[in-house]
């Protein structure tokens, strides 16, 4: 069973079976792609549509009730497929066929899974949703891992900046020599040093706040 629809092509109304219409539409779309960069594209397509209307008109006046797939096939054989009629500035003949193949292979997909961002399960960009679906892991877990990574990554730079602020710079040759020489540290030394350092830090903090106070009061 076929539904017959009416189309207007080249200013003519033509009755055509539905699947024949789809084939014709594909054909004209392929021509449009073929001539996309051509200056006279619209005119070329129009000329071809006029010719199609004429050929269909002859077919209908020959007694056919509607254009069917066979007629469209005959038409495309007469006029030529898009890739074959590009003229002098044409693409390689097999271009269309290759493209078709590529499209088909993507659609059938051979059962391979693909990674995409998931537009229906997303907080920001759908990355975690996509990864979760791809690796078959609960999205919540993926999100937690990402959040943890985010904070862990922040610890490094912050710790470095704090260390930069509190560890004094070796300024004298003596201090430089203390840096690597001397007794290796044991736990007690470390604890004692930490105590001294903290005392020192406290002193420096107090000094800093005094300076800041002076600075601001001077400004006023």
């Amino acid at each position: 069973m076929q539904r017959i629809i009416q189309i207007n092509i080249g200013g003519r109304v033509i009755p055509i079976e539905e699947d024949a219409y789809m084939a014709l539409k594909d054909y004209i779309a392929s021509l449009e792609r073929q001539f996309a960069n051509e200056e006279g594209k619209d005119e070329i397509i129009q000329d071809i549509e006029y010719r199609i209307a004429e050929l269909f008109g002859i077919r209908l006046s020959g007694g056919a009730a509607a254009i069917d797939r066979e007629d469209v096939k005959k038409l495309t054989d007469t006029l030529g497929h898009a890739s074959d009629i590009g003229g002098t500035r044409h693409l390689p003949v097999r271009y269309e066929a290759q493209k078709q193949q590529q499209q088909n292979s993507t659609r059938s997909n051979n059962g391979a899974r693909r990674l995409y961002r998931n537009p229906y399960d997303k907080m920001l960009g759908g990355v975690c949703g996509g990864l979760g679906a791809y690796f078959d892991v609960d999205v919540v877990i993926v999100r937690l891992v990402f959040v943890a990574c985010f904070f862990l990554a922040l610890i490094g730079p912050i710790a470095y900046i704090i260390a930069w602020a509190i560890i004094p710079l070796a300024r004298t040759p003596e201090e430089l020599s203390y840096m690597g020489d001397g007794e290796p540290m044991n736990f007690h030394d470390i604890a004692r040093n930490m105590g001294e350092e903290l005392q020192d830090l406290k002193k420096r903090g107090e000094q800093m706040s005094r300076e800041l106070r002076d600075f601001f009061s001077k400004k006023k």
């Binding site: 051509e38 006279g40 070329i44 004429e54 007469t78 074959d84």
Partner: peptide, 26 residues
């Protein structure tokens, strides 16, 4: 189909001219 783009190019290059003529069959 090869003829249509060729004719249009030749026409746009000023080599050809055309006129419309009514046709009984389409």
């Amino acid at each position: 189909g090869t003829l249509y783009p060729l004719l249009t190019r030749l026409k746009n290059a000023g080599m050809l001219d055309y006129r419309w003529e009514e046709s009984p069959s389409g």
